[in-house]
Amino acid sequence: MSEKLIRVLVAKPGLDGHDRGAKVIARALRDAGMEVIYSGLRQTPEQIVAAAVQEDVDVVAMSLLSGAHNHLFPKVAKLLAEEGADDVLVMGGGVIPDSDIPFLKENGIAEVFTPGTPTGEVVNYIKNNVR
């Protein structure tokens, strides 16, 4: 009876404190009818994966502006796979140079959104790619 809602973990890995983008995305996903779990700041990849598993989310959306994305994003994807949760859609956003995107995609990040991406684009991407 109850309809299946998309559940998303919006996560801030690493030490970066810029959460404007993460908060805007969280609100936009909520307004698009999704259930959003917000991780808060300074999460290690292990903490993010534990939350993703316990919350049984369909999507993990990470935002990072500090430049540590090549280190942190793939680690989250890898740990998720180790937990048998490789069906979770992992996405990244923030200040990410175009030249890093192929590396991230090869390492389990389904899509990368750079500054200026309309939130509607992220919403559509999730709707079209969850399961």
Partner: peptide, 20 residues
């Protein structure tokens, strides 16, 4: 960021952020 949050460069949580 590690310096701003009071972590040395050898702290686990600092990895990937050093000098960024």
């Amino acid at each position: 960021l590690p310096t701003q949050i009071g972590y040395d460069s050898d702290a686990e949580i600092a990895q990937g952020e050093i000098g960024k």
